[in-house]
Simulated scan of single mutants.
Amino acid sequence: MRRPQGSGRRGGTGPNSSSARRHAAAWAACLALLLSGCTGDGSGPPTGSSTSTGTGTSPGGSAQPQVVGQLDLELEIPWSAVFLPDGTAVISERASARLKAVRDGKATTIGQVPGVVPAGEGGLLGLALSPGFAADRYLYLYFTAAGDNRIARVKLEEKTEGSLSFGDPDVIFTGIPKASTHNGGRIRFGPDGFLYVGTGDSQRREQPQDPNALGGKILRLTPDGKPAPGNPYGNAVYSIGHRNVQGLAWDSAGRFWASEFGPDVNDELNLILPGSNYGWPAVTGAPHREGFRDAEVVWPSTADSSPSGLEIAGSTAYLGALRGQRLWTVPLDGENAGTPVAYFTQEYGRIRDVVRTPDGGFWLLTNNQNPDFVVVLAPPR
């Protein structure tokens, strides 16, 4: 069942200060120093999609992702990362509840977020930078508390040159159900200026099909944590029928995509439309059942995927795989998605997040706990 895709104003900010230019130059120099000849082979076990399967050369004849270095930052289960306008990266650590800043290839601890109660898959999870960060300095956090998952924001302030701090979190949204698994956690501002939130079913299978429950949903909020105007159910819910949403991204035309864990089968890449029902727990994948929207790409075996962080550059989606231990690329053509291609299979272990860097490349955040590191990819050619 397809609904017409709405349109929204595209927006964003970019670094334009002298400080930003200095950090951009330092970032470019860092990449040059990190240059190594390491690349993936563009291969892996066969995988499934809603139309076809396979691995091999990159879609559309584009070059395969190129590794230009690795940052050994002694991270402990990093979950999400954002880049500030000056080029500084901020990373969340799930179990320690610490925020870390990365400048010139070195990590320092900004502070530990109070109120986080890590357990199982819960802890300090997604980060999102305010669209108006240059003026308001807000960093948004999704974290597991004593009784629920919630969203807060903190103000990042410069203590001294090159040092950041934050005060007490301002909690703006509460009540997202928590459990040892399926806590969701990805947050991201969309082109319309609203905050989108991926939640999990928290092992409560009755919640995803209930439009008045917060579990198993994608939510859409104002920057102050209120339900965004125009939401299809008159509350915070934007789409229903999700199991555990892990990645959120928009393509160049403003279409909204999300990655999602299946059960033992049918990991998904979905095109998200307001008010659509993605089937869980009644269906998974692309069964063509009336009343449910099919996934655009399906990985029949979660051993090949368990998709997490998601980015889109040009006409290609980039998905990190946890259990699958690889980077997936998926060619996009309007509302259609093509054959997935795997890179770096079992080279770097579990990939939790895929983050676009200021120079147009990517960071891959690993989740191997020994300790974790960042794989740096060159900009796509």
Results as ranks from 00 to 15, higher is better:
Trp250Glu: 14
Ala337Gln: 05
Leu35Gly: 13
Ala81Asp: 02
Gln209Val: 06
Asp192Trp: 13
Val245Arg: 01
Pro380Asp: 08
Pro281Gly: 04
Ser80Ala: 15
Arg3Cys: 02
Asn336Ser: 15
Asn212Gln: 15
Gly123Glu: 06
Leu129Gly: 02
Asn212Asp: 12
Pro300His: 04
Thr174Pro: 00
Ile187Thr: 12
Thr13Val: 06
Trp363Thr: 03
Gly44Phe: 09
Phe194Val: 03
Thr366Leu: 07
Pro263Trp: 03
Tyr233Arg: 06
Pro118Val: 02
Thr47His: 05
Pro227Gln: 05
Pro15Asp: 00
Lys159Tyr: 00
Val154Pro: 12
Asn149Cys: 15
Phe166His: 10
Thr366Phe: 10
Leu322Asn: 12
Val171His: 08
Arg326Val: 02
Leu271Arg: 11
Gln70Tyr: 10
Gly262Leu: 01
Gln325Met: 11
Ser306Trp: 00
Phe373Gly: 06
Leu365Trp: 13
Gly338Gln: 09
Gly8Pro: 10
Gly48Met: 09
Glu157Thr: 08
Leu319Cys: 02
Leu141Trp: 00
Tyr138Asn: 10
Gly37Gln: 05
Tyr318Ile: 02
Ser180Gln: 13
Val68Glu: 10
Glu347Cys: 09
His242Ile: 03
Pro227Arg: 03
Ser49Cys: 11
Arg98Cys: 14
Gly126Trp: 03
Gly69Ala: 06
Ala81Arg: 14
Val197Leu: 08
Ala317Arg: 04
Asn370Arg: 13
Leu141Asn: 11
Gly56His: 07
Asp304Ala: 07
Gly167Asp: 09
Ser58Gly: 07
Phe133Ala: 01
Arg103Val: 08
Ser43Gln: 11
Arg204Trp: 02
Pro232Asn: 05
Gly14Ala: 09
Asp251Lys: 11
Ile187Arg: 13
Leu365Glu: 10
Asn370His: 13
Gln66Val: 15
Glu158Ala: 14
Gly309Ala: 03
Gly338Phe: 13
Arg323Met: 11
Leu219Lys: 11
Trp280Met: 01
Trp79Tyr: 10
Pro358Arg: 04
Phe189Glu: 06
Arg137Leu: 07
Ile240His: 07
Gly167Lys: 08
Ser276Trp: 03
Val67Asn: 05
Gly44Ser: 05
Gly122Asp: 02
Asp41Val: 03
Ser52Leu: 14
Asp224Trp: 07
Asp136Tyr: 09
Pro263Met: 15
Gly334Glu: 13
Glu157Val: 09
Thr174Trp: 01
Glu347Pro: 00
Gly42His: 08
Glu311Ala: 14
Val197Glu: 11
Val197His: 08
Val374Ser: 12
Glu121His: 02
Gln70Phe: 10
Asp224Glu: 15
Leu319Phe: 01
Arg326Lys: 15
His182Trp: 05
Gln369Phe: 10
Leu124Lys: 04
Ala24Tyr: 08
Ser58Asp: 06
Val375Glu: 12
Gly60Pro: 14
Ala303Glu: 15
Ile91Gly: 14
Phe261Arg: 03
Gly54Arg: 10
Ser19His: 04
Leu35Gln: 14
Pro229Cys: 00
Ile151Pro: 13
Thr284Pro: 00
Leu84Ala: 09
Gly314Thr: 13
Gln66Gly: 04
Ala317Glu: 08
Arg98Met: 13
Leu319Tyr: 01
Ala25Arg: 11
Pro371Tyr: 00
Glu206Phe: 03
Leu273Trp: 01
Pro45Tyr: 12
Ser306Asp: 01
